[in-house]
Amino acid sequence: MILLKHTISFAGYDETLAWHIMEVDPAHAALLIHVWYQAEKVHQMTVSFSEYDRFAHEFLKVHEQFPGSISFEKGDFTLELTYDRLGHVRIKWSLAGEATHVLASDQSYIGQALASIGVYM
Rank of each mutant, 00 (worst) to 15 (best):
Gln107Tyr: 07
Asp53Ala: 15
Gln112Met: 06
Asp53Gly: 13
Tyr120Glu: 12
Gly111Ile: 01
Leu79Pro: 04
Leu17His: 02
Leu95Gly: 03
Tyr83Met: 07
Leu79Ser: 02
Leu114Cys: 02
Tyr120Leu: 09
Lys41Val: 03
Ile2Val: 12
Phe59Ile: 00
Ala115Thr: 08
Ala30Pro: 06
Met22Asp: 07
Ala29Pro: 00
Thr100Pro: 11
Lys61Cys: 09
Val89Tyr: 12
Lys92Ile: 08
Thr100Gly: 06
Thr16Cys: 01
Met45Gln: 13
Gly68His: 09
Thr46Ala: 08
Leu95Met: 08
Thr82His: 13
Gly12Asn: 04
Glu98Asn: 11
Val119Ala: 05
Glu23Gly: 02
His101Lys: 14
Phe72Ala: 00
Glu15Asp: 14
Gly68Glu: 06
Val89Leu: 12
Thr100Ile: 10
Tyr37Trp: 14
Leu79Glu: 01
Ser71Met: 10
Phe10Pro: 01
Ser50Glu: 12
His57Lys: 15
Ile70Cys: 09
Ile21His: 04
Thr78His: 15
Tyr83Leu: 06
His6Ile: 08
Gly75Asp: 12
Tyr120Met: 08
Ser108Asp: 13
Ser50His: 10
Ser116Phe: 02
Ala115Gly: 08
Met1Gly: 13
Ser116Gly: 06
Ile21Lys: 08
Met1Leu: 07
Leu79Tyr: 06
Gly75Trp: 09
His57Ile: 05
Ala56His: 05
Ala11Lys: 04
Trp19Pro: 01
Ile8His: 01
Val102Leu: 15
Met22Ile: 09
Asp106Ser: 10
Asp84Pro: 12
Ala113Cys: 03
Met45Cys: 06
His63Lys: 02
Lys5Thr: 11
Ser48Arg: 10
Gln65Ser: 15
Ala11Leu: 01
Ser50Ala: 14
Ile117Asp: 02
Trp36Gly: 03
Glu80Trp: 05
Ala30Asp: 08
Pro26Leu: 01
Ala99Ile: 07
Glu15Trp: 04
